[in-house]
Structure formats: structure tokens, C-alpha cells
């Protein structure tokens, strides 16, 4: 099911939490929603789930408008809210039954669905406990189980792996990837590694506006532009090397990396590569070149650059 968000705006008082945001997600796609805290991720997700109505704009899920027929849309959506609210006094199985009933799962299938969810989400050992007795990681799984109970076409997960330990994070990510093959998934996070590991597409949002949209590789390339090299030279005098590097034809800027030792970061001019020149310079001066590596632009840098403005 396609999700189509068409220039929505949501204001809280004078503050524009979401400002003219538009994007679309296709089935089989996992969209990562990335942004600093308070950027508007949660508000956008709440709008898609029909909990908050945007001031302007429209959202359709599978062609049905959230504003016109919220109930029809809500049936297609599995939602895990940010803080993962749960009825702590309820036994786990009762809780899953309650959500299954509310989602109109047919009575004869409820038992099967609950069993399936307990298996898929790894809750086997905890199934007779009350939710309040579960650890945070297990509660997160319960949150995921209730979102998946009616086998929704669309899954919206607000920070699904917060509070989990590294093993659990990997399990949950695999689960999300598996689900994402057939379903439409939107997940938000402010952890870049997570989005990079799980998502096919990344949407970076800052101050209510979309600032980047693309695959992780694309985003990296966009921000890369100029070649960056890390160079270490064992012999020679630091200032001398620095000046000579600076004097190279294709080099735009040289940075000294460490306080002692001769490590430099070289930025080449637009579209030029200075690897050859650096190598030649070392040969000519009889310097021993210990490192010459292109430094990859990390998604962190893209993110910082886009959201620090």
C-alpha cells in the first residue's frame, strides 16, 4: 500500500512542527525518517496514523484519505508510538487479545495470531507474565507484537529499537527487514547506523522541513563532492611537508591532523584527484609514505551538515 503525504503542515501555537512536508512510500520499501530531536518526525508519523490532523495538506494510505476515512486507514496501519505505551497491569496475552479484537481480527484467528506474534517477536518465555513485569527490551517486543497483530499493510515505527541491547537491536532490525519486503514500513530514528542498516531510503527532516531524500549511498555521494585524503609521512619536518603539500597543483586545503607526527588531511580541488601528486612528492623528497587513504564521507557528516544549519 502506498503512503502519500501531500504538503502537510502542523502547527503547535506559533511553532510550525511540520512545514509543507511531502513524500511517498511504496510497498516493499523501508523508509527511514531521520532528524534531530524535535524535528517533526513524531508529528508526521502521528498525522499518518490519524491521531493528529494536519492543519493543511492531505495524507492518503492505499488511496484512502486519512482525514476522510480514518477508520479504514487505521485498520491497515500497525503503529508503535515513540514511548511504547502499554497497559502494564495487563497480562501479555490478554493485551494482545485486546488489540487483536480492536483491530477486528476474526475471532477464530485471534489465537493463531497471538501465537504467531509471540513466536515472531521472541516472547515465548515471557508469555504468562504481566506486561509490567517485563524488561524494557521485552516491552519493546510487545509493542511491536501489538503493531503487527492484524498483519497490517503499513507499519509505522517510532524509534523501534530504543532501549534494546545490541543483540535485540539486531534481531528487531532483521524482523523489520523481513516485514519490509512485502509491506510498507516507515521507521524513525536519530541513530544513523540503525537507519543505514535497515532502510532502503532515508528522509532527513530538520525543523519541520525535508532536507534530504534518497538512498544511503546517494546521500553520501551528494555530500562527498570533493576528494578527501588522509596522508601520513614518517620522515621529514612537519612545516616543510605542510608547505610542499599545500603547493601541489590539485590540492585545495591541507589540515594537520595530529599534534605530533606528520598526519594530514588533504582536500582536493573540485573534481580533481591529488593522489598521484602526493605520491610523487614523497618519492622526490625521499619521504616514507605510511598512509594514503581516501576518507569516506560518513552519513554522520551528511546529517550534521544538513541539520546544523
Amino acid at each position: 500500500m502506498d503512503i502519500l503525504v501531500d504538503s502537510i503542515t502542523k502547527t503547535y501555537g506559533a511553532q510550525r512542527a511540520v512545514d509543507q512536508v511531502s513524500f511517498s512510500v511504496k510497498p516493499g520499501e523501508i523508509l527511514g525518517f531521520l532528524g534531530p530531536n524535535g524535528a517533526g518526525k513524531t508529528t508526521t508519523m502521528k498525522a499518518i496514523t490519524g491521531y493528529l490532523a494536519p492543519n493543511e495538506g492531505n495524507i492518503t494510505v492505499g488511496g484512502i484519505s486519512v482525514l476522510e476515512d480514518p477508520d479504514a486507514v487505521k485498520k491497515q496501519i500497525g503503529y508503535l508510538p515513540e514511548s511504547n505505551p502499554l497497559y502494564t497491569e495487563m497480562p501479555l496475552i490478554d493485551y494482545l487479545r485486546y488489540t487483536a479484537e480492536l483491530q477486528n481480527v476474526p475471532g477464530d484467528q485471534i489465537k493463531n495470531r497471538i501465537r504467531e506474534m509471540i513466536r515472531v517477536c521472541g516472547l515465548e518465555g515471557e508469555k504468562h507474565k504481566k506486561i509490567g513485569e517485563l524488561s524494557k527490551g521485552y516491552r519493546q517486543r510487545v509493542g511491536l507484537a501489538q503493531a503487527l497483530i492484524h498483519d497490517p499493510e503499513v507499519l509505522i515505527l517510532d524509534e523501534p529499537t530504543s532501549g534494546l541491547d545490541p543483540n535485540q537491536i539486531i534481531e528487531i532490525r532483521e524482523l523489520i527487514r523481513k516485514i519490509g519486503k512485502e509491506k510498507t514500513v516507515i521507521l524513525s530514528s536519530h541513530i544513523l547506523a540503525e537507519v543505514e542498516a535497515t532502510c532502503d531510503r532515508i528522509l532527513i527532516i530538520n525543523k519541520g522541513k525535508i532536507v534530504a531524500d534518497g538512498t544511503p549511498d546517494n546521500l553520501r555521494k551528494q555530500a562527498q563532492g570533493k576528494e578527501m585524503l588522509k596522508v601520513s609521512i614518517e620522515e621529514g619536518e612537519r612545516n616543510d611537508i605542510f608547505n610542499k603539500l599545500q603547493g601541489l597543483e590539485n590540492v585545495e586545503m591541507v589540515d594537520i591532523l595530529s599534534a605530533s607526527g606528520n598526519s594530514f588531511e588533504i582536500q582536493s580541488k573540485d573534481g580533481k584527484s591529488s593522489k598521484r601528486e602526493v605520491f610523487k612528492l614523497c618519492v622526490d623528497n625521499n619521504w616514507y609514505l605510511t598512509e594514503l587513504t581516501p576518507s569516506e564521507t560518513k552519513l554522520e557528516d551528511v546529517f550534521r551538515e544538513l541539520t546544523m544549519k
Binding site: 502521528k46 496514523t49 490519524g50 491521531y51 477508520d71 487505521k74 485498520k75 496501519i77 503503529y79 508510538p81 514511548s83 505505551p85 502499554l86 497497559y87 488489540t99 480492536l102 483491530q103 477486528n104 501489538q146
Partner: peptide, 10 residues
């Protein structure tokens, strides 16, 4: 926060 959970169901 369970209110949000409930009201995002049908």
C-alpha cells in the same frame, strides 16, 4: 500514552 495507542486503532 495508551490513549494514543487506542485512538490509532480503528
Amino acid at each position: 500514552g495508551t490513549l494514543e495507542l487506542l485512538l490509532t486503532k480503528p
